[in-house]
Design a protein around this nucleic acid. Structure first.
Lengths: 209, 209
DNA sequence: GTCTATAGACGGATAGAC
DNA sequence: GTCTATCCGTCTATAGAC
């Protein structure tokens, strides 16, 4: 039988389409405004089925929050001694996000719901804190390791927010290479540089020998 | 002391307490979850009075969104040529936030509601984009001025988010001097540095001559 | 000015037919 | 597995008594 708008019985991929629709709406409007009815409508299924499969709306959010990529995979095999370490980190992260709408959506969910829903705030705090700390502790300088990792996170999250979620002009439309070139030395500073304030002398980033 | 530009309706005392309660709740739980009933309860007034004075909930948000400080005032009189320009910007902003719970609350409102409510998203985009661009255009290098300003914004917003809203361990509890010392050179780089990627050579921040 | 009462809409969740 | 019907709670907002 030809399928029309509705899904034939016995199809197994209905659950996936609900999950996809939920992720889109959570990313677009946040948790509260993404109603189960709206999610069902976008997935073209009956509203009752959403809860039938996922239990509660909170459970649905938990399922939608799973990261599509493992941060430690993105940042694997870095050379801690390279003076281009920061550039490499910036390059990998930005290329990952620029290349994948799926990754951007998941990040948007994290930011949008993590600031309005305590259930997801923990996941966001984890990403900024523990997760990145873990993945970067191999390459960060041993002193002030926690501060270094959270500074890197703060810069990258701020960048995601402006470039991908809010889409601020000037940041969202800049070529990825330009952003990498600007942010890379900053991450290098946070990861390996001297974080103490110079009492006198210059305090600028050297980008060329 | 309690001077205000004008006085809409209602007794000044009670209206102010409603506005204060609204700001606290918007900052804590975002727009949707900050119900008028809850705001009224915190202000210890009748729920009906909230709408009686502010019209609609959206109007209440608009009133709560007003910035407590003028960004251009914080950043007035900077020396564009100083090699400590970035440090000075970081210092002023961080001291302003660290010193005033009121400022932190207002920023939290902006972040929490700006990501879930399109009405406030514009204000947030403005802050990251136009406002900061305006206040920093006097001291930023003329080339790539828009990118430079938005990079500064992205770093500072990411910092606010981690330090004041999410309160990520390691970033929220670091002494303000340490954060200023770490972030200052980064802002210097964004404002005045060479944003091009070095093909070869070092790319680190010099913090001492 | 202040509060009671309630309208009117919408949300999550459930029971049960098919 | 899928869908209809609906309960029940909560929300914003309004009307009107005191």
């Amino acid at each position: 039988m030809a399928r029309r708008g509705r899904r034939p019985a016995g199809q197994g991929d209905t659950r996936e389409s609900v999950l996809r629709a939920a992720r889109e709406l959570f990313a677009e409007v946040g948790f509260d405004r993404a109603t189960i009815r709206a999610i069902a409508a976008r997935a073209e299924v009956d509203p009752a089925l959403v809860l039938h499969w996922f239990g509660t709306k909170d459970d649905l959010l938990a399922a939608a929050l799973e990261l599509p990529v493992d941060p430690s995979r993105i940042l694997a095999g870095l050379d801690a001694e390279s003076h281009l370490l920061g550039v490499e980190v910036a390059r990998r992260v930005l290329l990952t996000f620029d290349a994948s709408p799926e990754v951007r959506t998941r990040m948007a969910i994290l930011l949008r719901t993590g600031l309005g829903h305590e259930h997801a705030a923990e996941a966001l705090r984890d990403l900024i804190g523990r997760t990145v700390l873990t993945t970067l502790s191999d390459v960060a300088r041993p002193d002030d390791r926690e501060l270094r990792a959270t500074l890197v996170s703060s810069q990258m999250v701020g960048l995601m927010l402006g470039r991908y979620v809010l889409q601020v002009p000037g940041l969202a439309d800049a070529p990825v290479d330009q952003v990498v070139a600007a942010v890379g030395p900053v991450l290098q500073h946070y990861l390996r540089g001297d974080l103490r304030l110079p009492s006198a002398g210059t305090s600028r980033i050297r980008t060329a020998r």
